[in-house]
């Protein structure tokens, strides 16, 4: 039978994670399901979890000055959402909404922070993995800001 630990071991974000560390992580983990259009978290709320996406798609949204929701990124199977649990003041910076039926493993950030303080190897391992994700997302966002496919005619008129 598949346990949370074996499911987590197969997730891309945790690939090649040491068994004892996986065991600790699974102690803070639970299975969650989100329906299409269900919000997973809202900007400003307390960020005490992160999510390993097993199936489905999640939109990361930001509200424009006109209060419309603009999707800035989508995250899917094998990816992770949420790093605000790692950095004070532990509040979400964006909204996250399931675009389709989404299955994920939720990890309790408060539980993990305590365990990482006790086991620095685990803390360092997790930080390396999150830093990698943050760097990738940052460079993707920079490219997005360049307006790669913008029309040179329109740019020169500005």
């Amino acid at each position: 039978m598949e346990t949370l630990e074996t499911i987590m071991a197969k997730h891309d974000f945790l690939s090649r994670m040491k068994k004892p560390h996986l065991k600790i992580l699974s102690g803070c983990a639970s299975n969650v399901v989100f329906k299409p259009d269900q919000y997973i978290f809202h900007e400003g709320e307390r960020a005490d979890r992160f999510y390993l996406i097993r199936a489905g798609k999640v939109a990361i949204e930001i509200r424009s000055p006109e209060k419309d929701s603009i999707t800035i990124d989508t995250v899917g199977q094998g990816e992770v959402i949420g790093w605000s649990w790692l950095v004070p003041p532990y509040r979400w910076h964006f909204d996250a909404r399931a675009v389709e039926l989404t299955r994920a493993i939720a990890l309790d950030g408060r539980c993990l922070r305590t365990k990482c303080e006790r086991d620095h190897d685990l803390g360092y391992e997790l930080l390396k993995r999150f830093t990698n994700v943050v760097v990738q997302r940052l460079s993707a966002t920079r490219l997005q800001l360049l307006d790669l496919y913008g029309n040179p005619l329109k740019r020169s008129k500005k």
Binding site: D68, S69, I72, A140, D147, L148
Partner: peptide
């Protein structure tokens, strides 16, 4: 298919095309 920016009705991917390569 992915788009660099989208509002509500779009249910596809959002993000630069390079993000699709790893997936």
């Amino acid at each position: 298919v992915t788009v660099d920016r989208a509002t509500g009705a779009w249910r596809g991917n959002v993000g630069v095309v390079t993000t699709l390569i790893s997936r």
